[in-house]
Design a protein around this nucleic acid. Sequence first.
DNA 1: CAGTATCCTGTCCGATACTG
DNA 2: CAGTATCGGACAGGATACTG
Lengths: 169, 169
Amino acid sequence: MIPMRHKRFDKMECPIARSLERVGEWWTILILRDALLGTTRFDEFQKSLEIAPNILTRRLRAMEEAGLLQRRRYSERPPRDEYILTRRGRDFSPVLLALLAWGNKHFAPEGESVSLVDARTGLTAVPAMYDAVSGRPITMRDFQFRPGPAANERIHRRYGAPKRERETK
Amino acid sequence: MIPMRHKRFDKMECPIARSLERVGEWWTILILRDALLGTTRFDEFQKSLEIAPNILTRRLRAMEEAGLLQRRRYSERPPRDEYILTRRGRDFSPVLLALLAWGNKHFAPEGESVSLVDARTGLTAVPAMYDAVSGRPITMRDFQFRPGPAANERIHRRYGAPKRERETK
DNA sequence: CAGTATCCTGTCCGATACTG
DNA sequence: CAGTATCGGACAGGATACTG
């Protein structure tokens, strides 16, 4: 039902691939961005994104089916809907923050066009990944991907044992 | 030169849109994922991703031109190249971590298939966004997007003033 | 092993016109 | 205002065969 470009990604079972499957197309991410900023109405999205209305309709529908947005009727006559982020949609914000940080660092030679600022201090924030359990910043040296409880054979091949352990056998 | 589906995204000047522009297509992200895990060779990528070789070639080329990978000749005859992550490519890892966390939380009803674990303790990590400046977790309540020094008119319209300030006028 | 060369298909997207 | 309907184009991606 949901138009998915690459069903293969879901088959991979990798959570990253699965996320990509759900986020679907590029517009989806920008729609999520606007929704996080408080946009809820069709024409607000359309003006902000300069997206063709038929495309916006299609994306909005797909996002509703994917559980990222919930449509809510705010007027019965005439029938008017608005699009509210679900929990799942709001939980996408770390991805947006990471994309923002990456873009600002690498593709803004003339300076940042959008910054994330601390509302209390007004200082420009530097979003980074930490492990909420240990409190330490995540680096690929200190942390590693490992097969989880639901891992299948493919996952075990890809993420299987870290190299140092493998060498012992 | 780089095949870009939506030049419009770059025009937007939004750092998120720009990042999407560079990351380009879905395969790109999965290639980055594998590269982060240590994959460097053409056939390793191909086997891991089950991607058609011509597509892989195309992606690898585009990613080299986008500065995500650097091609390095490791054998002169026969000529053999390997693909090494650049700094820019490695800096993409927070996005992958955020996608991993989102996928694990929302699209793994049967349990996690891939987990991030703390190499020291072996505990499953919970990747989250913090502000490296203030040390506080980033929420949309405590932090907000604001136009940066290089913001253009469009950005000001979108990220302009926060709502509460606007209400005072 | 590490790709290149062709041909083809899917579908995301854009433009435009129209409607309750 | 909030969409729907239709048509067309571009390009990522797939399949396959071939090469140094």
